[in-house]
Write a protein that binds this DNA or RNA. Sequence first.
RNA 1: GGCGAUUUAGUGUAGUGGCCUAGCACGCCGCCCUCUCACGGCGGAAACCCGGGUUCGAGUCCCGGAUUCGCUACCA
Length: 513
Amino acid sequence: MDREVRVRFAPSPTGPLHIGGVRTALYNYLFARRNNGKMILRIEDTDSQRFVPGAEDYINEALGWLGIKIDEGVREGGPYGPYKQSERRDIYREHVKMLLDRGKAYIAFDTPAELEAKRNEIQNFQYDASTRLSMRNSLSMPADEVKRLIDEGTQYVVRFKIEPGRNVEVNDLIRGKVVIKSDILDDKVLYKSADDLPTYHLANIVDDHLMKVSHVIRGEEWLPSAPLHVLLYEAFGWADTMPEFVHLPLLLKPDGKGKLSKRDGDRLGFPVFPLEWHDPASGNISRGYRESGYLPEAVVNFLALLGWNPGDDTEVMSIDELIAKFSFEHCSKAGAKFAYEKGKWFNHTYLQQLDDRALAELFIPVLKEHGVNPDDFGIDYITRAVAMVKSRISFVRDLWEHAGFFFVDPESYDPKAVKKRWSEDTPRIMNELIAQLEALPDFSAKPSEEVILKWITDNGYHMGNVMNAFRLAVVGECKGPHMFEITELMGREKTIERIKKAIENIKPDEPAL
RNA sequence: GGCGAUUUAGUGUAGUGGCCUAGCACGCCGCCCUCUCACGGCGGAAACCCGGGUUCGAGUCCCGGAUUCGCUACCA
């Protein structure tokens, strides 16, 4: 079989795109590109009750940010549109009629309240071959009464008539053959007259068929309804062009049990959405990967490896490399706990690949947030500062913690370091150090280090104590890059100014009694 | 409850009957580097769900059980 690969990502606009949905979209995209196929974005807005304004734009923006390109969709257009289900009502009506005419479906008048009562009355009640004749539908009622009810405008649904006693086979590309008895399936609602809209199952099958989808790649939560979908393809007479099914393992909570949820992110401190989301109804704000400082490449790489591997030990891969290596053979079957710690590592890794100047540009907004005017320093200065500390950051905003001292004087001095490195004698030595620094013919790192270290040694001073007091005065704590790299960038004047300031402000600990 | 899926270190995973004294990565611990904190380098602790079977040989095949997850709506 050499049919064109066509896959679709079909989210419902009921809120922000969940990170699990993002991964499903990603796998669809990787598979499509790998096989020179097409990626379709279809908006499944058949649940008018749960529609959330802004959700569709969010989906587009999120996929765009991640570099998941859509070939056919609501925005992109394409030969099989419209790509929004609420605009395909005529198509669904026509197909529902097709099923009705063939006796594959029937009309049911049972109200939600009646069904609810039935479920309470009979445990494990299921609307199927064994019960449908005792319900109010076109199978149990005379034709003229059915017609009368419809003419009167009574609300009804169309149910799929499942024939019992069959073994339905679903061939899943990850899990192999899954067989299920048709008896355990219920007569699913395919269409509701109340809003003149189909349910997921009908719309999904009709659209996948009409849009010539070759592979249905979706989350594992759909596996139980896959047999129903197979039966629908058969009922329509489309069995020979039925797509291949691929059910992806779910993304689970990092700790505990169950599916990853928004609450887990709040609880454990990581985003579960690609972009920040402002809920229009509640006003709640949910964190996004983008706003949290993640690079899209890192998110893609991280997500790709949650449930798939390239078959070797390679971990850091660009999206093009992922495309080149992607296949379902290396997809895992079990759900993956969401390892967000590794996501941080990926971001760290990708940040290291950015050149210093690009990173400095990204740092500028952070500087402004902290009240620093970047123009006071210039991009070259910022770039050099960034270069010195980049290896220790996982996020752009971490740059402030590690390089902030290049831009603002210490406001306080780490008490523990003061206790350890700043004694009564230190101010005297620091004053000597100032004299040494002032006398330096060349203030750049190498030569100044030579002179200062020699001065320390010649005077019999303690290397660790002097250098750390020096560092404490300049940085505010005992950490950071090589001391003389710092002073070279900061300059003689600033360096000496900070030492003087420290001498004034640091009060050595009272000696213990 | 029913149905389905699932099961390798804390986590993500490699493994397609002998090359497995089970590999890689994140995380954790230690050492080195060193004026400090990191980075980096080196090293370490840490896993085949359980029970039967098949086989000369099982993480890998079969059976049973358990586990975990999902589905069980006029939601997707």
